[in-house]
């Protein structure tokens, strides 16, 4: 059950995934880290606007991410 690692922005809405890595500059990585995007945390796309921002479910909270940011979070789909 090896699943591909893909950017969060490409994840199918509603599917659960696990954060594998955050790429990008130091500042962005630190910001995402303090918001809870740690390696191993469970994420899901709750809602997305075409070409617009996404609402992500992370732990017990909801976080809005711009498209560009969502491409920097690498996730792995989990089977649910």
């Amino acid at each position: 059950m090896l699943n591909a690692v893909l950017p969060l922005g490409f994840l199918t809405p509603g599917r659960d995934a696990v954060v594998r890595d955050v790429v990008g500059g130091k500042e962005l990585r630190q910001r995402l880290c303090e918001m809870g995007f740690a390696r191993g945390s469970l994420v899901r796309i709750v809602q997305s606007q075409p070409c617009g921002p996404l609402i992500i479910s992370l732990g017990d909270g909801r976080i809005v991410l711009g498209r560009g940011v969502a491409q920097k979070i690498m996730v792995e789909e989990v089977d649910n």
């Binding site: 962005l28 910001r31 909270g61 976080i63 809005v64 991410l65 711009g66 560009g68 920097k72």
Partner: peptide
């Protein structure tokens, strides 16, 4: 470039 957009959505 547009800066990254990260914002909490409180319940």
């Amino acid at each position: 470039e547009v800066s990254p957009f990260v914002m909490e959505l409180p319940p």
